[in-house]
Design a binder for these strands. Sequence first.
DNA 1: AAAAGCATGAGATGAAGA
DNA 2: TCTTCATCTCATGCTTTT
Length: 433
Amino acid sequence: MDFTAKDKMVAILVNMGYPAVDALEAVEKCGLQAEIMELTDYIYAAQMEKQHDVILQEPAYIWPKPPHDNLPSRSRGKRKFCDSRVSLPKEMIGFGVPGHPRYIVERRLPKSALGPPYFYYENVAYSPKGTWETMSRFLDEIKPEFVDSKYFCAAARKRGYIHNLPILNRFRLSPKPPCTIQEAFPDSKRWWPSWDRRTQLNCLLTVVSGFKLSEDIQKRLESCPGATPPKEVQEYVLAKCRKRNLIWVGKNNVAPLEPEEMEMILGFPKNHTRGGTTRLDKFRALGNSFQVNTVAYHLSVLKKEFSYGMNVLSLFSGIGGAEVALHRLGIPLNHVVSVESSEVNKNIFRSWWKQTNQRGTLIEIGDIQHITIDMVGQWIKAFGGFDLIIVGSPCNNLAGGNRVSRNGLDGELSSLFYHYYRILHIVRDMMGR
DNA sequence: AAAAGCATGAGATGAAGA
DNA sequence: TCTTCATCTCATGCTTTT
């Protein structure tokens, strides 16, 4: 290499005001044939890139080390399935539901998953492929417990739960809520046609159908001669009723559920969502909520240990399904940190907190992304630690009803799951885990 | 400006059968 | 093992009304 030529070019660049290190790098990368202009461009681009790297590396959060990305283990021979694939059971009864007991001899939890704190995570069962595998991977490889709330109330609600709770000696809330449409809506019996054999409703969603569909159905039925409509009409009406979760409220007249009826089915107190909200807000809040009886059944195992109360970190609290469940179990809420971004939901929850005369302290946080290590440290210092972290992270990008942005766990809202992972590890670290 | 009304399938799964 | 068929889903975004 011609050292003289190289030194000369570096010297020119240094004279132009560029750092010697950058000048040397530029000459070496671009070669001796390069023009001065080309070299200065290179240095400029390299400097910008470095700056960019610095900006990117600035840690907005300190993320815990992600779990090892297990490759699917393939068996020898023709078997193509991988062992890590989560399969959804046909009957979603998890570790057992009332009436369908199923005895688990042993449930193995990895050491890293053992409490305290206990954690309880929930999301929709029918998520895009691979979603539950990823969630499990981030949550100590615990396999989700899939449970359909149709065993606890009059509507289906297929959800997966990843938790480290004990599962023996669960008990359910009393009184037992109505588990069939007929029990839940006795008044509808007199309008219910014999050819509609539904006994339970489908999943309660965040939107309900409008008046137009009911009108259309009524017209079709009334244009039929005779007592019972022909098969085609029956099937058409039934399909609509199933899809839009309609019940019979008059002669040939179907209607969607009212917010108060959804509250009842989901196990909330009457008028829980009353406080100053629009109809749309109520449907959205309820459609996104826990089914209280189901969650309470799982949390019931904590009653003995925490009969004097517990400290709860509640992420994505919504309208407070978790807190309502604990309250109805008779577990006092000593300290609750509730993270919820919707003002409407916060109002509903605060209103419940006052109405039930809670004596514990409530700390409200709007955005989970604003939670820092220092904040968690202050909470733990103030009241000792958390006994339970309870989370139902956004399902918007996972739910089957989303036709626009069902793009999985990395979607805009559903990716907030990773903040739960982040915070869970902060809490564990601070509690000496 | 806010609330309500309304149209918009894909994707996954399981059952049944070829 | 491969089709078909039936079923169901914590929703979004545009339009209309209040």
